[in-house]
Write a protein that binds this DNA or RNA. Structure first.
Lengths: 208, 208
DNA sequence: TAGATTGTTAATCGATTAACAATC
DNA sequence: TAGATTGTTAATCGATTAACAATC
């Protein structure tokens, strides 16, 4: 069963295409060529075509890609033609910001619960949610069949909470804690660590 | 002048090594081998050694790397043996969270000013700072020789603000707005877009 | 039809990995 | 010295890019 494995880098670019297509749609553009997309997002046209061709022929020779149609296809490929329920673990400043950020819901990720272990926080309101006891995390995930979680606990607590999440059935973790979490290979993890990004960029800055 | 160009992917891994070394230091470990590091962060030992060897020989055959010495070297390479002043543009929820997040300062990135264009927000306090008028952004950057900025304005405003930043002399932008910004090639940009990360991960999740 | 642009093959480029001599 | 682990070369692997036939 040698599956025609699609490279991870290709998958990572699809949401970028989708983002730009959204914008084109709002601007009322009906059709777009790979050359136009290329210029707008700074990815070579050949690469865009190659990426898309992993999944089929979505374009039309001579004219380009129908914006709406391509968006639908990408959403389907990325499993985004549905709403994903998501839990947030950690109700500190970061957790609050995540819960109150509107961008997740707008793109189909609905935060359905937030958890913490601090007695002071449990029971308090964050956004439109009430903070629940992390003791109830596993049963909640199982009962509601949650696959996606955001981790906004301190670095020290992250590994053990992540393990709990995985044990309960979570398959994708958005990790805001500044640690590298080792995951079984059937669990996806994305690290949101702006400090690492800054530390990369400073390499290229003038030393003074 | 064919410079021995170091790949971007290599640079991007160095802060990860640094993060883990920090942890080892706290744990009191003095020396670490590439094999140990490998196991701890899930990057092949060969790759770690290869990455480091771009910059010189930091290890000792037979024993490994001195934790403190390697940290010092990495900090030097990444230009992290100093404090970077940073401005934040956009004082909405996201901007507030960024200003109030302690992790930047801890790692040597000091937020020295925050800007917005909303009259209601200008003059109000965020963390220990007072929100300044974005009209004064360029002069502030020039006067204080700021090279690093975080962009937490709405997507629609991001491109024009980014342009202002670059014009004033900013060379590294941490972009929180959900847009791709095209930058001159002497300006570094990192996108912090958790939604894109989620949209990548859902590809791998079971469809139901 | 002529012009434009896709989808795909093949060539190139660059990054990862294996292997091992050097050396602490 | 013997054992361990680095630093580096060469081989492999995989991703990007160029080129162009197919086709709208």
């Amino acid at each position: 069963m040698t599956e025609n494995q699609i490279p991870d880098v290709v998958i990572a670019r699809l949401p970028i295409y989708l983002l730009k297509l959204n914008q084109l749609l709002r601007d009322g553009q009906k059709v777009v060529s790979s050359a136009q997309l290329s210029e707008m997002i700074g990815i070579p046209a050949t690469q865009i075509r190659k990426d898309l061709s992993w999944f089929g022929g979505f374009g039309k020779q001579g004219s380009g890609y129908d914006v709406i149609h391509l968006m639908d296809q990408l959403k389907n490929i990325l499993n985004l033609d549905r709403i994903w329920q998501m839990v947030v673990v950690g109700a500190g400043n970061l957790g609050k910001a995540v819960v109150e950020y509107d961008g997740f819901r707008q793109k189909g990720f609905e935060i359905s619960a937030v958890f913490d272990n601090e007695p002071d926080r449990i029971g308090s309101r964050v956004g439109h949610l009430v903070v629940q006891d992390v003791e109830d995390l596993e049963s909640y995930i199982k009962e509601h069949q949650i696959y996606v979680a955001a981790l906004t606990v301190p670095a020290s607590a992250a590994p053990s909470v992540a393990e709990k999440l995985v044990k309960a059935g979570v398959r994708a973790i958005l990790n805001y804690a500044p640690v590298r979490l080792l995951m079984p290979k059937n669990v996806e993890i994305s690290n949101v660590d702006p400090v690492l990004s800054l530390q990369r960029m400073t390499f290229y800055l003038p030393r003074k």
